[in-house]
Amino acid sequence: MKSSQQRRHADAVWIKASRCNNGNCVEVANLGQGVIGLRDTKVAGGPVLEFPRDAWNAFVQEVKDGAHDPRIT
């Protein structure tokens, strides 16, 4: 029997990252209740990292701003 978390992951609509290449991809999904899921595309039934929506949105904004780009000094 699947846990409620496993059902939530299985029922989610997963979106592959737009910068996916060579099969090294991640997928993201809205898991409901203010939770965003992140998983490895190659292991669809594997572990899922879960983040509060506010934390995920802050991370995405930081990426857009270049805060995590090692090329930016």
Rank of each mutant, 00 (worst) to 15 (best):
W14C: 03
W14Q: 01
I15H: 12
K16A: 07
K16D: 03
K16W: 05
A17N: 14
A17C: 08
S18C: 01
R19H: 11
R19Q: 06
R19I: 02
C20D: 08
N21A: 13
N21T: 11
N22F: 14
N22I: 08
N22H: 15
G23N: 12
N24C: 04
N24A: 08
N24H: 05
C25N: 00
V26W: 01
E27I: 02
E27L: 02
E27N: 06
E27Y: 03
V28S: 05
V28H: 04
V28P: 00
V28W: 01
A29L: 13
A29T: 05
N30G: 06
L31E: 12
L31K: 10
G32S: 04
G32D: 02
Q33T: 07
G34I: 13
G34W: 10
V35H: 07
V35D: 08
V35I: 15
V35Y: 09
I36T: 15
I36P: 01
I36A: 14
I36F: 14
G37F: 06
L38N: 08
L38K: 11
L38S: 11
R39F: 03
R39V: 04
D40E: 14
D40Y: 08
T41P: 01
T41V: 13
T41N: 12
K42M: 09
K42I: 03
K42Q: 12
V43H: 14
A44R: 13
A44M: 14
A44S: 15
G45P: 04
G45D: 07
G46Q: 09
G46S: 09
G46K: 09
P47M: 14
P47R: 11
P47N: 11
V48K: 01
V48S: 00
V48L: 00
E50P: 06
F51L: 14
F51K: 04
P52E: 15
P52F: 09
R53H: 07
D54F: 06
D54H: 08
D54Y: 07
A55S: 08
A55W: 00
A55I: 04
A55E: 11
W56E: 11
W56H: 07
N57T: 03
A58N: 08
A58C: 02
A58F: 05
A58T: 13
